[in-house]
Write a protein that binds this DNA or RNA. Structure first.
Lengths: 202, 202
DNA sequence: TCCGATATGTTGACATCGTACACATCTGGC
DNA sequence: GCCAGATGTGTACGATGTCAACATATCGGA
């Protein structure tokens, strides 16, 4: 007998409640921990109720992933990366280290954020973690630290480097590094990407 | 009524057969497509039989991942990266592009290879895709293209860059690029990493 | 050569999961 | 005030991972 845990027949704002419960679940267990039944249980609702708001488990997962990406973006702009008085290059470095730091600190969320084929439609809003990256690269061009030629497509080397290192540190061989080794390797990864972008030769 | 599809009561070499069937399943569907029941069905064996060879689904998945990593390593050494007469730098570039190419061509396998927390024990054997990378970096040092100082830990920037790009191209925003755009971005990622490694100023 | 230990495979069961369908209940616009 | 649509419930189905009890094959020593 599932007790509704509420007085009204309708929940009020179930969709949001399901996403919120999903965030709790995925935080520790990653995407695999997201069970439709568990999530509805936490919301005090029958399993089928979720289908009034999401086509299937996958769609709920995508909504959760979206929320996590927004959260990442927010944190990365609130970090030293957004501090005034820093050069674009310094901000770029902070953004990269912040990205890796988030991945290591919030493992479950990070994995969830990039688990599904999320075709973010909001090209305009761009609430992705990408935003902070774009900003710092633009600043580098303004400051003459990055040539306009090199600016186009510069997101890829940067994002790839930190994204890849984060995943190698979670599932891959970088998991075997000690804390300090990992920190050093992360810095090396970020610095190599920045150097590679701004190096004069070719 | 499950028909054994064989004459003997014992299978003969079930462990290998399960891994082989698992490779088929994960090739198209990735790790999510690996079902213990499906895999035993294909081997003509009851579901529980798998437990004589693997502690659980996870362990089977790890064995499959191991096989895929070996395969990747093999392919990357058979590719242009292993060709004679190429400089270390040229081989490094080929290894990187080969890695990304494998990820895009064999999506399911690539995802499977890095899905679990695989703590590869064989530090000596090193059958990882890493081997080809290590070799080309060493060659660059011998050829004076990479300073010995910069050699240590140089694997991380390289591996991170290509690994990250591969994943962004599969689940992330790089999936929206056209074929040619993606190819260009991949080249940019690899070249930036190499430039960053060998650039003089720190 | 037989025989028992051990490795390997089978059967049946259980809890859990995603999902579908029919039904119940609430709520806003005429 | 009532009816249509939105939202939540109940029940059911098939599939899955895993387990315990049982069956059969294989191999090394008496």
């Amino acid at each position: 007998m599932p007790q509704p845990a509420r007085d009204t027949y309708h929940h009020g704002n179930l969709r949001a409640a399901l996403v919120e419960a999903g965030l709790e679940l995925t935080r520790t267990g990653g995407p695999a921990a997201l069970s439709l039944r568990d999530v509805t249980r936490r919301a005090g609702v029958s399993p089928s109720a979720a289908y009034r708001h999401f086509a299937d488990r996958e769609e709920l997962l995508r909504a959760i992933a979206q929320r996590i990406q927004d959260d990442m973006a927010e944190r990365m702009q609130a970090s030293p990366a957004g501090a005034l008085g820093l050069s674009g290059r310094e901000r770029l470095r902070a953004v990269g280290l912040g990205y890796i730091g988030f991945a290591l600190r919030e493992t479950g969320w990070f994995e969830t954020a990039f688990f599904t084929n999320n075709t973010l439609p909001g090209e305009a809003g761009m609430p992705t973690p990408l935003a902070a990256l774009v900003e710092s690269l633009d600043a580098m061009v303004r400051e003459g630290d990055l040539s306009p030629d090199a600016r186009e497509g510069a997101e890829w080397p940067c994002w790839s480097a930190v994204h890849g290192f984060a995943l190698l540190a979670l599932h891959g061989p970088a998991a075997r590094l000690s804390e300090s080794e990992r920190r050093a390797a992360a810095a090396r990864v970020v610095d190599t990407a920045i150097t590679g972008l701004t190096a004069p030769g070719r």
